[in-house]
Design a binder for these strands. Structure first.
Lengths: 155, 155
DNA sequence: TCTTGACCTAGAGTCCAGTCTAGAAAATAG
DNA sequence: CTATTTTCTAGACTGGACTCTAGGTCAAGA
């Protein structure tokens, strides 16, 4: 967990990024989110951030904690099967400010249903797999071959 | 555009596939499994069947119910996240006959654990998403903006 | 200062799991 | 028999989500 940013011993101006104002380099954000720096730049190209990520005078990206929080939410959405295109639509809605909360809610509710459905499907798949596992266990215990796939299964 | 077919019409035994011996055309198997005929040919190229699929004298594939059953299991494995390469390893084990049941069991157990882990992850993701949904619902009910992503989130 | 190591861009490449195409032959319905 | 539908092959193509490359620039420690 690399997330503390508490008592700030401020240097001076904002040169560099190991500072107190919440400025995080791309590498630190990668660590904090588990994403690769490549993936972070890809995310930006795809318009998935809620704001244009600011740069240092030298052109390097400076993130803050809100960016990290957003990325952590994005990871939840992505890991649970939301396509990048949909995350982008959500980001677009958030970016365009208040007034479209109903749309954002609808999008999230749709995804919630999709996740519930996926869990249900996996649970059904799991039952089938467990059944196979139990069949093999019984076979190995008892030396029978009933219910196993044979090279040339009995008609 | 029917070209003449010369004299190559050698008499052969099994015409057609709507017969009694359980012979199924690729189209019927596609229907029965929910896969496309393209996917079925792809599956075969990838060596995922338990046997070489036999052909009619005219070169068309003839499946049987055991093939369909195997495909239905494959679909469970695939849908639950098993990569094609792993399904192929499993098929290879089954094809090479008795004696490797321990390996097959290990493969299935590993996948069982993977599916359990995925369900756990999705359940955690779902909690986060539900939380967001509830936040938006409250916002829309009460007209507050607490906890919502703003275009420029408060530092 | 010098030297690493982190970072920059644009764009090409990778992997997975199919999907689609073209042109031809086979099966089936009328 | 004819027309329509299905199937055949090899191989090119797709889409999603990154990942990596090349050729630099920037930042920080000894």
């Amino acid at each position: 967990m690399v997330a503390d940013m508490g008592g700030g011993d401020v240097g001076s101006g904002d040169r560099g990024m190991g500072n107190s104002a919440g400025g995080l380099s791309i590498g630190r954000v990668a660590e904090a989110t588990g994403m690769s720096v490549h993936a972070l730049r890809f995310f930006e190209r795809e318009g998935l951030f809620l704001r244009p990520i600011p740069r240092t005078s030298g052109g390097q990206r400076v993130y803050d904690q809100a960016d990290v929080d957003w990325l952590l939410l994005c990871n939840r959405l992505r890991d649970s099967g939301m396509p990048i295109a949909t995350i982008r639509r959500f980001a677009d809605l958030v970016r365009s400010g208040p007034g479209n909360e109903t749309e954002r809610l609808a999008l999230l509710r749709d995804h919630e249903q999709a996740v519930r459905a996926k869990i249900a499907e996996l649970t059904a798949d799991l039952a089938v797999i467990q059944d196979k596992v139990r069949t093999y266990e019984r076979h190995l215990r008892e030396g029978t071959a009933v219910g196993l796939w044979a090279p040339t299964p009995p008609a």
